[in-house]
């Protein structure tokens, strides 16, 4: 049986995790990311009723309609999805929020909410489908477009880009990854780890817009991505409950320091095997340096850029009840008649 037809722990096939038919341009990078999400959810046996799919506005933000049809979804307003997720996860902390945004949705109109979201450590996966343009409004430059880039209709972009991964690292996000929609292996490994993360996990995924920004000289194009992607490391994700093949690592004589293993909050493991470069994602200063170098030298570095022992989530900080707030009943929601009498006495 191929992976695709195999049923998972919940007895579901990969096809069960699909959504509606995509209405994006054929070949759009965003569709590949939807497919990665479908594969990962299937492999991880995610119960779909426990997942909420959240998005802002844009071609990218439409995609939750195209995966995980068994999950509730909320297509919010432009740039403001983070606040909606904040409220939804406070209402029910037992839900897994998978959110999709675009570089316009996040990097311009939504930059404020993006930063405040990670400051609060709202538990969610935040996927930026980054194509350097506003797809849905027909190809204007976004704030992640390269300085000096030229587009047929809008001409030359004279402003420097905002690096959304760097913003996340600086903003206190505890999990930051960068990927390329065309690299299913790495994106899927990053997605699995992000879903297991306790807190905000940002994935900045370069996702070519075939209609408005796919010329080979664009750093957001397929050709550029395929030719220039530099993998920081090979990522191996071992889900919770499985013992990572630790012995293998040592026996196989990897030099110490070449494999970094991180145990995540839920007991799953990420194992990073060094490839081209030395990068320890557990160091914030290294992460910042790496991203600055990548921008300066125009290097398309992908992988887990930053990881930190998670801080308490917003709900934990606010010490909310272990029963999801949305499921509390009258006994918890309405103080007694006697309590009101007591309160009233204080105002007499």
């Amino acid at each position: 049986m191929t992976t695709r037809n195999r049923t998972n722990d919940l007895g579901l096939t990969r096809a069960d995790y699909k959504g509606g038919k995509s209405t994006l341009c054929p070949g759009c990078g965003h569709d590949s990311i939807s497919n990665h999400i479908i594969s990962v959810a299937h492999e991880m046996s995610l119960p779909m009723h426990k997942v909420i799919k959240m998005s802002g506005i844009g071609c990218s933000s439409k995609t939750p309609a195209y995966f995980l049809g068994g999950s509730h979804a909320f297509n919010a307003i432009h740039g403001r999805m983070p606040s909606v997720v904040t409220g939804a996860t406070l209402a029910n902390h037992s839900l897994t929020a998978i959110a999709v945004s675009g570089d316009g949705d996040t990097g311009s109109i939504g930059l404020g909410q993006y930063k405040h979201l990670m400051r609060r450590n709202v538990p969610m996966v935040y996927i930026i489908e980054n194509n350097g343009v506003y797809g849905l409004t027909k190809g204007q430059f976004s704030a992640t477009a390269d300085e000096g880039q030229v587009l047929k209709y809008y001409g030359r972009n004279d402003l420097p880009p905002i690096d959304l991964a760097l913003e996340a690292v600086i903003g206190g996000c505890t999990f930051v990854g960068r990927g390329f929609s065309g690299d299913s292996k790495q994106v899927q490994a990053l997605l699995k780890a992000a879903i297991s993360h306790h807190g905000t996990a940002v994935l900045d995924i370069i996702s070519p817009c075939v209609t408005f920004n796919n010329r080979p000289d664009s750093t957001k194009s397929y050709v550029y991505g395929k030719d220039n992607q530099i993998l920081l490391h090979e990522i191996d994700f071992t889900p919770q409950g499985f013992v990572p093949a630790r012995e293998e690592i040592t026996v196989d004589s990897y030099e110490s320091g070449e494999v970094i293993e991180v145990e995540m909050h839920d007991g799953s493991f990420i194992r990073l095997k060094k490839l081209s470069r030395d990068h320890d994602p557990r160091s914030r200063s290294e992460a910042v340096r790496l991203l600055e170098e990548a921008e300066r030298e125009q290097l398309f570095l992908t992988g887990l850029i930053y990881y930190e022992e998670p801080r308490p989530t917003l709900g934990e900080t606010l010490e909310i009840h272990s029963t999801p707030l949305a499921q509390l009943t009258e006994a918890h929601l309405r103080p007694s008649r006697e309590t009101l009498d007591d309160v009233m006495k204080r105002f007499m």
Binding site: I52, F74, A76, I77, R80, P82, S83, V84, V85, T86, G87, A88, T89, L90, A91, N92, L95, G112, Q113, H116, L325, A326, Q327
Partner: peptide, 18 residues
């Protein structure tokens, strides 16, 4: 962080049943 976020939060929460 602002009123936009405040109403976004309560809409998310209301949607999720709170």
């Amino acid at each position: 962080e602002d009123e936009l976020a405040a109403i976004g939060m309560i809409i998310g929460a209301g949607w999720a049943g709170a």
